[in-house]
Amino acid sequence: MKNIALGRYVPYDSFLHRLDPRTKLLSLIALMIMIFFKFSSTAMNFFIYALLLIFIYVLMRISHIKLKTLFKSLKAMWVMILFLLIINVLMPSTGPYFDIFGFKLYHNAIYNTLYIVIRLVMMIALTMILTTSTKPLDLTYALEWLLHPLKYIKVPVHEISMIISLALRFIPTLLEETERIMKAQSSRGVDFEQGKLKDKIRAIVSLIIPLFISAIQRSEELANAMEARGYDPSGQRTRYRKMQWQMKDALSLVFIVLLFGGMITLLVTSFDFFLMMGFVL
């Protein structure tokens, strides 16, 4: 049960691990936006994607993520990719096409599928880099910092962040509990793997009800413990974990801004390096 969470935090001491979580969160958002830019030609798109993929690969190496781990998490998506391809192929399009026994397979259909696949891979890789190099709690702090302005429109940012961090804290506990109840019910003859639909529903019920009851009891005791230790959600609190901007954060952000700026410039000027060289895909 404990090894199911792909992309969970792995405690290395890499450059990315040491970066401020806010830097990482902001960079992730910037990169995620860049992934969706569409440039003036197909060649340009692939060229930029190649650059981004190399950049992401470097980040993966820095944060000690193996390509194998990435592919493992992509495994579940083959079906989706195939589905995307079929949809794209069936969509009417224009432009050049391959003629396969009278069926028009447009180049665009292939490109569009490729775009989506590449974007997906990059999104997953980036999220993975963030989550393996950042403690969940630090991420919560970064998120709270980012959402801070929403406080002024009465969004309970602190409460939301407390809820998230408590949820993160209790995930391992609840997984352990799930495993224990499953084993206990298996000892009473429940089969969680096989059986008819009716048996399966009963099996799930015998797991869910005890799990809920214990979760409710836990949350009540937790609330008591928090209150007894003087927690008041609306009150002022100091904060133990202070995030500290450092030189490497500043430099990283400058780099990301430059990258972002560069992309925007390419986008706005419809610059096409390949067209200039007389190359059309």
């Binding site: 224990r180 109840i181 084993k183 206990a184 019910q185 000892s187 019920v205 015998s206 009800i209 005890p210």
Partner: peptide
Amino acid sequence: AGLVFQFPEYQLF
């Protein structure tokens, strides 16, 4: 072989 877990009351449903 029947097995009773620790704190088995959590299996009641």
